[in-house]
């Protein structure tokens, strides 16, 4: 597949994944753009892989967790909070949804990444551990802590979200 074809087909899905991961569209756009720029430079190698999309998505995770992204804490653009301010029309469901997004956004990044890879991307612990560079026990503890912070009781509904690809 040519790189341009890949971008045309997969960029929307990459944006969704990155937005779920970061909770911010501007940050997602920044990460996806950077990652696609690097993917272009290595496209001969990436396109020859069995699952190029999985590799690019992993590049997004790596980029998000990389040290350079930490500095976003000083960036003035707080999209999550802006959206929160829009809520207030009495729609309980929307309010709860946005409250969940805010809780998600406040999670430490590795916890959030673990939750997204598990419940959004549907990856098994072993794959999540490989992507995070830690053991499966750590993955499980990260997810448990994240779910507690998200105030989610797994026993209530053990199903998993189906990512829109």
């Amino acid at each position: 597949m040519e790189f341009a074809d890949y971008v045309a087909q997969r960029r929307p899905a990459l944006m969704r994944f990155a937005t779920v991961l970061t909770c911010r569209t501007w940050l997602a756009d920044d990460i996806v753009s950077d990652v696609l720029g690097r993917a272009f430079e290595q496209w001969d190698r990436i396109s020859a892989m069995a699952e190029p999309h999985a590799y690019v998505r992993r590049m997004i995770v790596n980029d998000y967790l990389s040290w350079r992204r930490r500095l976003f804490r000083t960036a003035p653009r707080a999209e999550v909070e802006d959206h929160a301010a829009e809520v207030g029309d009495g729609a309980d469901e929307r309010a709860e949804r946005d409250a969940m997004i805010r809780r998600l956004a406040r999670l430490p990044r590795r916890q959030r990444t673990a939750v997204v890879l598990r419940y959004y991307a549907g990856l098994p612990d072993a794959e999540i551990a490989a992507q995070l560079g830690c053991g499966q026990t750590t993955v499980r503890s990260q997810i448990a802590r994240a779910l507690a912070a998200l105030r989610i009781d797994l026993s209530a509904s053990p199903r998993a979200y189906q990512e829109t690809r």
Binding site: R11, P12, M15, R16, A18, T19, V20, C23, T25, W26, A28, D29, H83, E93, E96, R97, D98, M100, I101, L104, V115, Y119, Y120, L150, R151, I152, D153, L154, A156, S157, P158, R159, A160, Y161, E163, T164
Partner: peptide, 26 residues
């Protein structure tokens, strides 16, 4: 406490925002 449905709703909303961002960019 919430169940996973609340998390799924959050994912869906974030996907919608991503799609809107792509549309705006386009």
């Amino acid at each position: 406490m919430n169940d996973l449905k609340a998390l799924e709703d959050a994912f869906a909303e974030l996907e919608r925002r991503a799609d809107n961002a792509v549309l705006r960019a386009g």
